[in-house]
C-alpha cells in the first residue's frame, strides 16, 4: 500500500517529497482465471445472441425437417414438435433471456443506487420508508412475487422484466445502502460537508463512486437471478409468450416431450445453467477485485 518515498531527514516543512521512485498507476489486480472463463462464456453467449439476429444458426421459425428428430446434420440440436431446428431457437432464446434480464438489472441498479444512497446518507423518514418497502418485498418468495406481477400486468415481456426488478431490488438496495452508510462516515465525506459541499456533490462525487463497486458486483449476481426468474416465469407460462423463444419458453416446450425427445430440454437447459454459472463466477471475481473488504463485512 505505502510504496512511497518518505521525506528524508528531519524534514523541515518546505522540503518536498519526491514523486520519482514511486510506482504509479492504479491498482492493477486482474480477474482470476476462473472468473475470466466466466466472462468468456458470458461474452460467447452474447455473441450467440447477436448471431441469432442475422439468423446465423438458421431461421428459428422455418420448418427444416421431420418432427422431434435427434441432433444430426441440418439440425445440430435436433428438431422440435413442429419440425423447426432447435439451434436457431436456442440462439434466439439466449438473446431474449439476456436482453430482458439485463434491461431489468439496469432498472434495479439505477433504482437501488438512487434510493440506497439517499437512504444511507440521509437516514430519517426516507430511510424508514425504503427499508419497510424492501422488507415487504423480501417477505414474498420470488416466484410468488413474479406470479403476482404477471397477474397484475398480464403475462409477457413486461411482466418478466418487472418481476426480475422486484425480485432483485431488495437485496441490492440493502447492500447499496449499507455500503453508503459506511462511506458516509468516512473523513473525506465529513471534510466535504465542512467545506460546504451540497448534497449533489457529496452523493455524486463521494458516495456514488465509492459504492459503484458494490453496484457492479450485485448487478452481476442480479443478472443471474434475473435469468433464472425469466426461466421460471416463462416456464410457468407467465413470462415470454411463444412463438417468441426464450430459454424459459424452450424449456417449457421441451418438458412436454421429455421422454420422446430429451434434446429439446437439454439444449436450452444446459445453456441456462451455463449462463447462470458463468455469471456467478464472474460476480465472485468482481467482488474480490472491486468490493472493499470493509463494506463486505457489513453484508
Amino acid at each position: 500500500m505505502n510504496r512511497t518515498t518518505r521525506v528524508k531527514g528531519t524534514a523541515r516543512a518546505k522540503r518536498t517529497a519526491s514523486v520519482k521512485g514511486t510506482a504509479g498507476g492504479r491498482r492493477a489486480r486482474r480477474l482470476d482465471p476462473l472468473s475470466l472463463t466466466g466472462l468468456g462464456c458470458l461474452l460467447l453467449l452474447v455473441l450467440v445472441a447477436l448471431g441469432s439476429l442475422v439468423h446465423a444458426g438458421g431461421d428459428p421459425d422455418a420448418i427444416v425437417g421431420p418432427r422431434l428428430q435427434p441432433p444430426g446434420p441440418g439440425w445440430w440440436l435436433g428438431t422440435d414438435n413442429l419440425g423447426r431446428s432447435m439451434l436457431p431457437r436456442v440462439m434466439e432464446g439466449v438473446g431474449t433471456t439476456l436482453l430482458l434480464s439485463s434491461a431489468a438489472v439496469l432498472v434495479t441498479a439505477a433504482l437501488s443506487a438512487g434510493f440506497g444512497i439517499l437512504a444511507g446518507y440521509r437516514g430519517g423518514y426516507l430511510n424508514e420508508l425504503v427499508m419497510r418497502v424492501v422488507e415487504l418485498l423480501y417477505s414474498f418468495p420470488a416466484i410468488v412475487l413474479a406470479i403476482l406481477v404477471a397477474a397484475v400486468a398480464g403475462p409477457g415481456q413486461l411482466a418478466a422484466v418487472a418481476s426480475i426488478v422486484l425480485v432483485t431490488i431488495p437485496l441490492m438496495i440493502r447492500l447499496v445502502r449499507a455500503a453508503a452508510v459506511a462511506v458516509a462516515e468516512r473523513d473525506y465525506v465529513t471534510a466535504a460537508a465542512i467545506s460546504g459541499a451540497g448534497l449533489p456533490r457529496i452523493l455524486g462525487r463521494h458516495i456514488l463512486p465509492n459504492v459503484a463497486g458494490t453496484i457492479a458486483v450485485q448487478g452481476t449476481y442480479a443478472l443471474s437471478v434475473g435469468i433464472s426468474v425469466e426461466g421460471g416465469l416463462s416456464f410457468l407460462g407467465f413470462g415470454v409468450q411463444p412463438p417468441q423463444a426464450s430459454l424459459g419458453v424452450l424449456i417449457r416446450q421441451g418438458g412436454t416431450y421429455m421422454m420422446a425427445a430429451p434434446w429439446l430440454i437439454i439444449g436450452p437447459g444446459v445453456v441456462l445453467v451455463l449462463a447462470i454459472l458463468s455469471i456467478n463466477v464472474l460476480g465472485d471475481g468482481l467482488r474480490d477485485r472491486f468490493e472493499p473488504r470493509e463494506t463486505r463485512a457489513l453484508i
Binding site: D187, A191, G196, P209, N210
Partner: peptide, 28 residues
C-alpha cells in the same frame, strides 16, 4: 472553516486524484 481529521486512510476519497481533492473546497 476547514478540518483535518483522524484517519489518514479515510481522509481522501480513493476515487479522486489528489489534485481534485485539494481543489474541492474551491470548487464548492
Amino acid at each position: 472553516m476547514q478540518a483535518v481529521l483522524q484517519h489518514p486512510h479515510w481522509s481522501l476519497n480513493p476515487r479522486m486524484r489528489i489534485g481534485q481533492s485539494v481543489a474541492e473546497p474551491l470548487a464548492v
